[in-house]
Design a protein around this nucleic acid. Structure first.
Length: 524
RNA sequence: GCUCUGGUGGUGUAGUCCGGCCAAUCAUCUUGCCCUCUCACGGCAAGGACCAGGGUUCGAAUCCCUGCCGGAGCACCA
């Protein structure tokens, strides 16, 4: 009934309330977006956002959320995306020189292109300029209290003696900080907020401190006086025209702290969205840069792309599309509560993306080297002589796409099958893509049964490879390495090619070593 | 201790602002069936949730109160 006069209703609405019609259309479009609307988008000419990673190491899976969500919003609002490396801690979170390009590479893998890339460590003079200005406005003071001493005063809501220091002295001491005349811990510049603020986290926070360790980037190695995140990031967000900040709840109080700086300068604070922490299931290794780094150094992981590492390099090597990760991250939304990301949803997304285009191949498993706790699997292959049938098998490249042709697998005198698939003596089995055989205890004899044997008589269909000419494969899984033999055609694959090993799962061809070919397992 | 912030199936999410159309959406997941040269894809079906207790109301996932549980900040880390 209602559907019948939908068009009529629209026409009528157009007449009496065109603005309402536009609203309806906007609502309809909104249904396609898993992510909630960004706040107050209409107040800005352009939605400008930033990813602000600390380049202190390669990215783990959780890091993907930042570009995934921000990049998706960028596409949705036709906005602008900055990648800004917040590398202002040369010591505790010391930047890793390879991480700058590594992160950009990961963002590219996820399918996004930043409109601009900057490094905070290139912008030091800008931060100094603004600090000078802030001092001029009476909004900051140099302080030589020890951390503990200040903390104690602060917790009691009491100002330290340096707070009312003569502005000229503050100016001189700050210049001395810039000139590196203090050592680490001797002097900081604090933002004057409200020392009695009911939230102790907001009271007179540190804007600059001394760091003795030189920055690893040559261009920034001479600086000793470094801004803290709250100051640097706050200044940059304004200067770079950021309209929407999207970041984790750990920075919840940051906006409130930075608001004080913005107030001194008379700036408007951007819109902010905070999200909770992400945990990913399916990994034994904790998702943290330092933990992964430690495990690699201890030899427990082979590297950042070890299949057991919850890193982007790892899933990438397994042949999982960046898009699958992005989709999963976007589905998580931007809730402030902590969320668990199920790898199965990444796998489901990936399967959606690759199944149609991925060719099939046989892999007969024979051996397993577990590399994680509780992993168990027993795979064994049996060689069985075969006689009486055609010389070659022709299974399709893809069961849903006849037009892609057939694989040609020579059978030879014997085949390998997984021992668990071996039928009882006297029973038949259907070698997939080849035909029916009867097992006589020693070998397979081709029978003349047609496919009805499978359809109506319940003969099992199993995968197999020829005993001669098959490709020894090591299939690297998150729980260990599976050994086996792939059909001869697998020798023609190139690195990055995907295949679906029938009844085993999707895998990415990695390389051909001298004695074996290495593939990485993605998922079933 | 102080200050924020959150709690819908196994997981994620919609609904919460403006109480009824919610015996709660969608996806993933699990199970069963169908399709198929046993995978994957596809189709069908089933399973599974409003943190607890009070209150307001004709009516509460939605509003109020209390409790419980969780996360974050109070760094010269980001």
């Amino acid at each position: 009934m209602n559907a019948l006069d939908e068009a009529e209703k629209r026409a009528r609405l157009e007449e009496i309330a065109p603005e309402r019609l536009a609203e309806l259309d906007a609502e309809d479009e909104g249904e396609d977006h898993p992510l909630p609307d960004l706040p107050n988008v209409e107040d800005y000419d352009e939605v400008r956002m930033r990813c602000a990673p600390n380049p202190n190491g390669p990215w783990h899976l959780g890091h993907a959320r930042m570009p995934a969500v921000i990049g998706t919003y960028k596409e949705r609002y036709d906005g602008w995306m900055l990648v800004r490396f917040d590398d202002t801690d040369p010591e505790t979170k010391r930047p890793d020189l390879d991480a700058y390009d590594g992160i950009l590479d990961d963002i590219d893998y996820l399918g996004f292109k930043p409109d601009e890339v900057v490094k905070a460590s290139d912008r030091m003079e800008t931060y100094y300029e603004h600090a000078r200005e802030l001092i001029g406005l009476g909004g900051a003071y140099t302080c030589s209290c020890s951390g503990e001493a200040f903390s104690e005063l602060k917790n009691d809501g009491e100002a330290c003696p340096h707070r009312e220091k003569n502005p000229g002295v503050v100016r001189d001491e700050f210049e001395a900080m810039i000139d590196g005349e203090y050592e680490s811990g001797e002097m900081v510049l604090r933002v004057k907020t409200d020392i009695e603020h009911k939230n102790p986290a907001l009271r007179d926070f540190v804007a600059f401190r001394m760091v003795d360790t030189p920055h690893p980037r040559e261009e920034a190695a001479a600086y000793r006086c470094w801004p803290m995140l709250d100051f640097q990031s706050g200044i940059d967000d304004h200067l770079l025209g950021i309209t929407h900040i999207i970041r984790g709840i750990d920075l919840q109080d940051s906006a409130k702290r930075q608001q004080f700086v913005y107030d001194y300068f008379g700036w408007e604070y951007p819109e902010v969205v905070h999200w909770g922490h992400v945990q990913v299931d399916a990994y034994d290794v904790q998702m943290s840069t330092s933990t992964i780094k430690a495990k690699i150094e201890a030899g427990e992981l082979d590297g950042w792309d070890d299949p057991r590492a919850p890193t982007l390099k790892s899933v990438r090597r397994r042949g999982i599309r960046g898009q699958a990760i992005v989709d999963a991250m976007v589905e998580l939304g931007t809730s402030t509560s902590d969320v668990d990301l199920a790898m199965s949803s990444i796998y489901a997304n990936n399967r959606d993306l690759i199944d149609e285009e991925t060719p099939r191949a046989f892999l007969v498993r024979n051996g397993f080297a577990p590399r994680s706790e509780g992993a168990e699997a027993a795979y064994a292959a049996t060689e069985v002589p075969i006689a009486g049938g055609p010389e070659t098998a022709h299974p399709p490249v893809h069961p849903n796409h006849e037009e892609r042709g057939e694989r040609d697998i020579p059978v030879g005198d014997a085949v390998l099958v997984e021992t668990a698939d071996l039928p009882d003596e006297g029973e038949r089995v259907w070698l997939k893509g080849y035909g029916p055989v009867r097992y006589d205890g020693d070998g397979f004899a081709y029978t003349d049964d047609d496919i009805d044997a499978v359809r109506e008589e319940g003969v099992d269909v199993i995968h197999w490879v020829p005993a001669a000419g098959s490709v020894p494969v090591r299939l690297r899984r998150t729980d260990g390495d599976v050994y086996g033999y792939a059909e001869p055609g697998y020798a023609d694959y190139d690195p990055d090619d995907l295949t679906q090993f029938v009844r085993v799962g999707f895998a990415r061809y990695d390389r051909a070593d001298e004695d074996e070919t290495v593939a990485y397992y993605a998922h079933q």
